[in-house]
């Protein structure tokens, strides 16, 4: 099957073919990526939808109200997964950028360009739901404390990456510039994570930490974990679907270019 794709060099960019089969580059072959991702996509999307729906219904109707926040605590079941994915998505973007700069992995470029719009969407979701939670609880839609400000910076980093990747006539230069921006922006991730511990902030510290026990009742923790897992799978499915589309679009461009050149030679 691979041989069939390899035999048609006009379809894939040449550098993909010379490296295919080595390490990470096994997945750089566009034909193989399309087959693999096509088989994988339903198995990510369906559990993602089911878990998210279960988590949201549980959180909205079955989880108990908080003793002091009342029902407003239910916003946590959408806000916390969005916040977690805003950071995790950026980490994935940075990983793809490193793979792009160091190994010149061609799929990493496409994936990075598709992660940033999804990441920006989830960061916006985090900011909006946080604002809707902050107004009734804190008494303010927005405050310039270190946590909120650093997440806003993350949102702008995503927007900058989206714009930069698409700003050049030559896509390769856009991918390079975007990768550098994404890697520089990684310094913001520990700032977001530890802002609530390093500085006085209005935002409370994390309830769920890697080493400490969660400071949350189990009946609230379960729906939160469910919706976090669900949203993570939804995020992954969205990125995978968009990357599939991007790979196909690149093949379409390559085919059109080859066809135009062919006609030029004949004419």
């Amino acid at each position: 099957m691979v041989r069939r794709v390899d035999a048609r060099p006009t379809i894939a960019p040449p550098r993909t073919l010379s490296r295919a089969g080595r390490g990470l580059h096994r997945f750089a072959n566009p034909g193989r990526f399309l087959r693999l991702s096509g088989a994988l996509l339903p198995w990510i999307a369906a559990p993602g939808l089911a878990l998210t729906a279960a988590g949201l219904v549980w959180g909205l109707f079955f989880a108990p109200a908080d003793w002091q926040q009342g029902d407003a605590v239910r916003i946590m079941y959408v806000h916390v997964p969005a916040a977690w994915l805003a950071s995790a998505g950026y980490l994935a973007l940075a990983g793809c950028s490193a793979a792009s700069l160091v190994w010149r992995h061609p799929l990493a470029d496409l994936a990075a360009a598709e992660i940033s719009p999804v990441g920006a969407g989830f960061t916006a979701m985090c900011l909006i739901t946080g604002s809707l939670w902050g107004k009734p609880m804190w008494g303010a839609w927005w405050v310039w404390d270190a946590r909120l400000t650093s997440v806003l910076v993350l949102f702008f980093l995503y927007l900058g990456h989206i714009a930069l990747v698409r700003a050049f006539d030559e896509p390769e230069r856009g991918y390079r510039a975007g990768a550098i921006l994404a890697l520089v922006g990684v310094v913001n991730l520990p700032i977001i994570k530890f802002s609530v511990d390093w500085w006085n902030t209005l935002h409370q510290p994390d309830s769920i930490t890697l080493f400490g026990a969660p400071t949350m009742s189990l009946v609230m923790l379960w729906p939160l974990l469910l919706s976090a897992l669900g949203y993570t799978l939804v995020f992954a499915a969205l990125v995978l679907a968009r990357t599939r589309a991007a790979v196909m679009e690149r093949r379409i461009r390559a085919l059109l270019t080859a066809r135009a050149r062919h006609l030029e030679i004949l004419g």
Binding site: L56, R74, G121, F122, M125, L132, K135, A241
Partner: peptide, 24 residues
Amino acid sequence: THLPFIAAAYAVAVLLPAGYAVAA
């Protein structure tokens, strides 16, 4: 309690990913 805020937050959290999914 706080129903408008909760409803708005859940609407954003459902409609935004759904919009991305339809577009993809």
